[in-house]
Nucleic acid binder design. Structure first.
Ligand code: FES
Ligand code: FES
Lengths: 132, 132
DNA sequence: AATATATACGACATTATTAATCGTATATAG
DNA sequence: CTATATACGATTAATAATGTCGTATATATT
């Protein structure tokens, strides 16, 4: 439990890889996939999603690829996680209130407190710190 | 991602339920399962595990059940989670070092830093705070 | 002693989620 | 025109979480 997904892992690997390059140099999904042993298509989809989220810029065609578009020190880890994986809740009923026992439940409030702590922690770390 | 398991959720519900009772009063798995709509057998196994971990005391036979044994203000959420679900790592390779790309990986150190933050956060909260 | 009810626990089955692949379309450098 | 790259929905595979079953043991009650 409390694991991050491979998607996020791959995204971080890719960002860190690009960070170590010249700012407007392009990196293809293939290059990263090969270097780190990541399934290329899966990585590509993740990079595409990051492009939709304006974290990366994509350039099509041969010699195309991706480069970092956003200011990584302006994006919190919380926002990054939520962009990729949706709302961050330790339990499903943190957001959805269609939980069967929403009435009987005796831990909803305490869990929300823990969850707030967690979200707060991730809100205070930037992508820059992780990938620099 | 970053979800807690139902096992942990059920354990917290059970603890909170018992906390609201007299200290040496016994509570059966059945009682809790019925009241909160939890699968009885699954809950029972979780309570048994907590008994093995000396968080609860179990009493067999009819009119048996469980009661809180440990001082909940002495058990951190981190220890509680790890008792129930094993080592707390956001990625598998935080503990196991049999990761394929342990050499090539460029995010191992940063991820460990995030993970340390998370473990630290859970180490600073006690079970008491959650279930009181 | 017999019975009913509770814990104890390994093995199995089911379900949900995550991870990976496939197929097809579009863009563009050479 | 061709090779190579992104774009992306649909599908399958793999893994992990969740739930159930079967059986054993303890013990209060009758
Ligand atoms: S389990 Fe859904 S509200 Fe508590
Ligand atoms: S992915 Fe395993 S060490 Fe980074």
């Amino acid at each position: 439990m409390l694991k991050i997904t491979r998607k996020v892992e791959y995204a971080l690997i890719a960002l860190r890889h690009m960070q170590s390059k010249d700012v407007d140099e392009l990196t293809s999904a293939k290059e990263i996939a090969n270097q780190y042993g990541i399934p290329q298509q899966l990585l590509a989809k993740t990079l595409q999603q990051m492009a939709r989220d304006n974290i990366l810029e994509a350039v099509q065609g041969p010699a195309g690829g991706y480069r970092i578009l956003a200011k990584l020190d302006r994006i919190s880890l919380k926002d990054f996680f939520e962009k990729l994986e949706g709302p961050l809740g330790m339990m499903d009923c943190y957001f959805d209130s269609d939980c069967i026992q929403i009435g009987a439940c005796n831990i909803r409030t305490p869990i929300q407190r823990i969850n707030d702590n967690m979200r707060n922690m991730f809100a205070q770390m930037t992508l820059q710190e992780v990938t620099q």
